[in-house]
């Protein structure tokens, strides 16, 4: 083998072959990593307090039975839209917390807090099939308003994760 070829082989092994072995190690190590629980997708609200029994401040938010709740997740952060409200939140373990605001056109009723912000706290049952989300919605800065309990079920999308 000429010197040039020998140098090429050494350079090729150190710059190409060895890193590929390293990649195998990285992929193995990554198997043990835990990413946040997935809540991404479209959920259907299955149960929410009936309109009559709901605090008046909550009635205008458009959160009824069968309302779609859309969550777009990036790690622990997510963007959530439901009915006429939307906002951002965080997931820790299986607990979601989000702060949602009504659309601009939806002014908060008098005595319904400063800006009609809604707090969402929910827990995801990730292992259930389909996944379930249960929790409550409460108006921020409105101590007189009771919270509303709800649960939602993940839509089984025809476009599953990983498919196109």
């Amino acid at each position: 083998m000429s010197r040039l070829n020998k140098n090429f082989v050494i350079a090729y092994v150190s710059l190409v072959a060895l890193p590929i072995f390293g990649l195998v190690g990285i992929l193995r190590r990554g198997q043990n990593l835990k990413a946040p629980t997935s809540v991404d997708g479209v959920w259907t609200i299955q149960s929410v307090a009936a309109r009559g029994t709901r605090p008046p401040c909550m009635s205008a938010l458009g959160l009824d039975q069968d309302t779609l709740l859309t969550i777009s997740q990036s790690g622990k952060n997510f963007v959530i839209n439901a009915g006429k409200i939307g906002g951002t939140g965080l997931i820790e373990g299986t607990t979601l917390q989000a702060s949602l605001k009504p659309a601009e056109t939806l002014l908060p009723a008098p005595n319904c807090g400063d800006d009609g912000s809604v707090l969402l706290t929910a827990t995801v049952a990730a292992k259930a099939s389909p996944r379930m989300l249960s929790g409550e919605l409460s108006l921020a800065n409105c101590p007189s308003c009771d919270s509303v309990k709800f649960y939602a079920v993940a839509q089984v999308s025809t476009q599953k994760k990983g498919a196109q």
């Binding site: 990593l33 946040p36 629980t37 997935s38 790690g75 622990k76 990983g162």
Partner: peptide, 13 residues
């Protein structure tokens, strides 16, 4: 991966 992904995506992918 633990910061910007979620558990529905395999680490290898």
């Amino acid at each position: 991966y633990p910061r910007l992904s979620d558990d529905s995506v395999a680490f290898t992918s």
